Amino acid sequence: MLENEILKNITVLYAEDESIIQEGITETLNLFEINVLCAKNGQEGLSIFKNFSEKIDLILTDIKMPKLDGLGMIEEIRKIDKNIPIIITTAHQETNFLMQSIESNISAYVLKPIDIYKLKESLIKAIESKILKEELIEKNKKLEIEIQKNKENQQIIETQSRFAAMGEMINMIAHQWRQPLASIGTASFNLKYKLLSNKFNLETAKGREEQTLFFTQKLDEIEFYVQNLTTTIDDFRNFYKSDKKLINTNIETPIKNALKIIEKDLEANNIKVELDLESKKEIHIYENELMHVFMNMLKNAQDKFLEKNIDKAKIQIKTFDTKDSVEIEICDNGGEIEEKNLNIIFEPYFSTKKEKNGTGIGLYMSKIIIENNHKGNLNVCNKQGNVCFSIILHSMI
């Protein structure tokens, strides 16, 4: 900061009982373009400060003054404002004055007769410190606003992620229900057709036995398919449970639960999943959140396979233990990620599927879940023509 500018137009409360000294110092301060409010003693200075505290930038005061000395005035001012810069001018060098002034958070201590250059230097340092504090406070306020905005944006992204995942879930439910519902419809039609067309001769024991056998078989089929539908609902309901509790389990559990939900969809699109689950360690995890991560990566791979018409599409999932962590590697042969996108693939709203309504928040949320919620690491790289996601989670041991 420029010395001539930093003092310009500041307002100083100056308390000094010797009028000659006060007039001389005031005239000098005016040369620096400083506004001066003068007081003849500490009591008058305290009264001026109470009336104009918002306008006063700095206090310059003598110690020895009638009615209320400088230290008494400072003590009362500190009850109102703990941070305003204060400079003491005095002809006394007693240790007790110095100690009292230090306890009162004094910015500088200038001895009489006053050296104008030293006084100016003390004024600059004191007001510069005040300005820096004010700038820091203002930056902190702006930072708090930005933090709040980030929290709000995070909530919006999480909500969007949940809706996007829910839409994908509904599609998978529809796909998994299509075949059982069709089978139930076929079984019901056959039952009705056999019954109405009198295909069984109920007058004979053999006919009645054939009808009972046929009806039992079809009703068993219907019961099996209904149970299949119920299981599907349970799987998806568990995935969307709102309770968030850490559990101790092997990483194999959330991987297989995620596969249980999406495997029918993968099989329908001729996508092969190879598992090499060697990890045996237990870890602290939010199971449904990790299921969300694995579901997102499997779904992304599936979308890429379908978009590129990949022949012999394959996803490989490996887990293994290291000294103090569990590592998961998920690779697919759907082609590498462009090098320019490797560093931004986890950024919110980045997507290579925009033409197909890609939201660009799945991998971002996966990063949040792994690194913020589980204190792990999530990375991606190209490996021998494949895309591989690497997840590291710390074990309990």
Rank of each mutant, 00 (worst) to 15 (best):
E27P: 00
E27M: 11
T28E: 15
L29K: 07
L29R: 07
L29E: 04
L29W: 01
N30V: 05
L31M: 13
L31K: 14
F32E: 14
F32G: 06
E33Q: 14
E33W: 01
E33K: 14
E33R: 13
I34A: 10
I34N: 05
I34E: 07
N35R: 10
V36L: 08
C38Q: 15
C38H: 03
A39C: 08
A39D: 04
A39S: 12
K40Q: 11
K40E: 13
K40M: 08
N41S: 12
G42H: 03
G42K: 05
G42V: 11
G42Y: 01
G42E: 03
Q43G: 14
E44G: 03
E44D: 04
G45A: 15
G45V: 01
G45W: 00
G45Y: 02
L46I: 00
L46W: 02
S47L: 11
S47F: 12
S47Q: 13
S47K: 14
I48N: 04
I48L: 14
I48P: 02
I48Y: 02
F49Y: 15
K50F: 12
K50G: 02
K50R: 15
N51S: 15
N51K: 08
N51L: 08
N51R: 03
N51C: 09
F52Y: 11
F52P: 00
F52S: 13
F52C: 10
F52M: 10
S53V: 03
S53I: 05
E54N: 13
E54T: 13
K55N: 14
K55A: 13
K55R: 13
K55L: 05
K55C: 04
I56S: 11
I56P: 10
I56V: 14
D57H: 13
D57F: 04
D57L: 09
D57I: 06
L58I: 03
L58D: 02
I59C: 03
I59V: 15
I59L: 05
L60A: 07
L60M: 09
L60V: 02
T61H: 08
T61C: 05
D62H: 08
D62V: 06
D62M: 05
I63E: 11
I63R: 13
I63C: 02
K64Q: 11
K64G: 03
K64R: 12
K64T: 08
K64P: 04
M65T: 09
M65Q: 07
M65I: 09
M65W: 00
M65E: 01
P66V: 05
P66R: 08
K67E: 13
K67L: 10
K67W: 05
L68Y: 08
D69V: 07
G70S: 09
G70E: 11
L71G: 06
L71N: 10
L71V: 10
G72M: 12
G72T: 08
M73L: 10
M73R: 07
M73G: 04
I74Q: 00
E75W: 07
E75Q: 14
E76Y: 12
E76W: 09
I77N: 00
R78I: 09
R78E: 01
K79H: 09
I80N: 01
D81R: 01
D81H: 06
D81M: 04
K82D: 04
K82E: 08
K82H: 07
K82C: 00
N83S: 13
N83I: 09
N83D: 15
N83K: 15
N83Q: 14
N83T: 12
I84G: 05
